[in-house]
Nucleic acid binder design. Structure first.
Lengths: 152, 152
DNA sequence: AATGATTATTAGCCGAAGCTAACTTTTTAC
DNA sequence: GTAAAAAGTTAGCTTCGGCTAATAATCATT
């Protein structure tokens, strides 16, 4: 069998040269995926502290829809990564870094959500889609979303 | 410490009642995540077959930006799940089901990409963001994206 | 047809994120 | 202040999706 380039020139269909760009995209998406869970937790912890004065594992578990041991393990990773602090059998606190990340995530979430609503989506679907999309929008896209949502 | 409801009523800020909706969103996102890799592979396999006449693991690896053993393992899962067929040391074929999924993914990808471009994003960023976003848009959102992209 | 290069597979490692079961600690209620 | 309930932790299992190193098969070139 011939090489990639040979075959490409044999067939050379539409394609500007998306192949290499695509690789970068895949790699970027995999990177984004690695931080998704941490971002969701940190954002939720900030919310809980704001709403209820503290972030307890049991509430995190309920809101995330996972079991308590899963939360415990994830909190261990967040602590290791310097995003939270905690003492045994006590609730969780955000570090400076954690707070900064939470703020960033909250803002991003808000923008995506407002954008989807502005586009005409119903609130439930908008919430669900925003949760998935927010981790995959670049700064540029976010800026465009923001402009669109704000325009009347 | 008091219960969730007690604390909520003590603080009861903005909030219509997004807490339960949020849980559903998180669960939905986790479900979507489980099929992301499979969808990317199937879509790419279809592309390779179209462009080059066959889908070889080495080309899949190059396009995905992963190593050959990673591809091998993933192809094993795809075969187990009935999306592809393959013979040892040969290239990969899509099953009926795999072809259907690939078509669906390609269409979704196209719509998201066209939407982002229509919004004014540069092609590289659009490609990268589309790759991440496409797995997290509901049918409703997709319909809105499509309408928006088509409007002049 | 033999050999060297390319490609594919296998084995075995790792970390993330989920789970259940069992146990400890803390909180609540009496 | 003690007993029951709730919350938190630990241990141990699973799957997924990466990786490297080593091996096996195929292909291409002479």
């Amino acid at each position: 069998m011939s090489t990639d380039e040979n075959l490409a020139s044999e067939h050379q269909e539409s394609e500007a040269r998306p192949a290499e760009a695509r690789v970068e995209a895949f790699i970027g998406v995999r990177e984004a995926r690695r931080s998704e869970v941490a971002e969701d937790y940190v954002e939720l912890i900030a919310e809980l502290i704001h709403e209820q004065g503290e972030a307890r594992p049991v509430d995190i578990a309920a809101r995330m829809g996972v079991t308590a041991p899963t939360v415990a393990k994830t909190l261990g990773r967040l602590a290791r990564d310097g995003l939270i602090t905690r003492a045994k059998y006590r609730s969780v606190f955000l570090t400076e870094e954690g707070r900064a990340l939470a703020k960033e995530c909250r803002e991003r979430h808000e923008i995506v959500l407002r954008f989807l609503l502005r586009l005409g989506l119903d609130p439930e679907t908008a919430e669900r889609d925003a949760e998935g999309i927010e981790h995959h929008v670049s700064q540029r896209t976010l800026a465009l979303f923001s402009d669109f949502a704000d325009r009347n």
